[in-house]
Amino acid sequence: MKWHLLAVGQRMPAWAQAAYDDYAKRFPAEARVHLHTVKAEPRSGGKPPEVLMAAERQRLEAACPKGARIVVLDERGERCTTRELAQRLLDWQRDGRDVAFLIGGPDGLDPGLRASADHRLRLSDLTLPHALARVLLIEQLYRAWSLNTGHPYHRE
């Protein structure tokens, strides 16, 4: 099983990229998170958000590994603790499918994509910038992986 993070938007602020890279390099080779970025649809031209999200959906679906379990990050998604995320990762690992975590663009994810996802996950009740969402996700994946491998990273 491989983990993939698919995100709309190719450029992150330097601080966010540095934080993301710091967590990404902590994973061993067999547990790496593979980052795939797709171009955001240009916001000029007065296109309605539905058109923008549909275009970004096509790019995300094209970048998604075939047969992967789709987990969308969404403000309406399910809340879970780090321990619950760790357990889900173990459960998902048992079925052997890759897991693709999807982060939408400035307008969010296409409603059809959200509806068709295997899981909808919420990182916070707060509104987060997309760059920070990437950092929070990889940090939580690292923390969950650490729990599952007995690493003393998580403290309660």
Rank of each mutant, 00 (worst) to 15 (best):
R79H: 13
L136V: 15
G108R: 10
R143V: 01
K2E: 10
Q140M: 03
A24N: 02
H4V: 04
G45V: 11
Y23R: 02
W15I: 03
A7T: 04
N148I: 07
R143F: 01
H130Y: 03
E30F: 11
V71H: 06
Q87L: 14
E156F: 12
P13W: 00
Y142E: 03
W92L: 10
W145C: 03
D95L: 11
L141H: 05
D91C: 12
L137V: 08
Q93A: 15
P65R: 06
E56C: 08
P42D: 05
W15K: 01
M1P: 13
I138K: 08
D98Y: 06
A24M: 00
E156Y: 12
L137S: 06
H154D: 02
K39T: 11
R11Y: 02
Q87D: 14
I138E: 06
V99H: 07
K25L: 05
E156K: 13
L128M: 13
L121N: 11
R114Y: 10
T127H: 12
E56N: 09
L141I: 05
L89A: 12
P106Y: 11
A16D: 00
D125T: 15
T81E: 06
A55E: 11
G112D: 12
L73Y: 09
L6A: 03
S44K: 15
E156C: 08
V99T: 15
A40L: 00
H36V: 10
K66C: 08
A62R: 15
H130R: 04
V135G: 00
